[in-house]
Amino acid sequence: MGLLPHEKALVQRLKDEPFTFLGMYGREGDPKEIAARLKSENITWRNAMDLGEASDGTLWSTWAVRGFPQFYVLDEQGVIRQRWFGNPGEDVIDGTIEALMAELRTKKKS
């Protein structure tokens, strides 16, 4: 929960940029209740739900999730550029994303 204010600020700051923040919701629970809670907490970004009957185990098998939070940062080609177990610190998150955004802007120019 400690991360949410920073995540909201990040999403807001980059809302007009080619940037997407995707939640991968993986804790057990009723999908309807979770959807309601996302709304009440003002979490506006997309959250992939890999839960209950509909679960094909994507989170747990393909992504080898061992605990929360866990982050992957992908570039515009879908290449994994960074991965963190736990919160690496807001400056590290921001710095990594900013570097990739700058890289993307440079590529688009050339």
Binding site: F19, F21, G78
Partner: peptide, 18 residues
């Protein structure tokens, strides 16, 4: 939706839960 829908964008995947 698919992850690949987001090609061309920088993407953060945040594995989490309340």
């Amino acid at each position: 939706f698919k992850l690949s829908d987001y090609r061309g964008r920088v993407v953060v995947l945040d594995f989490w839960g309340f």
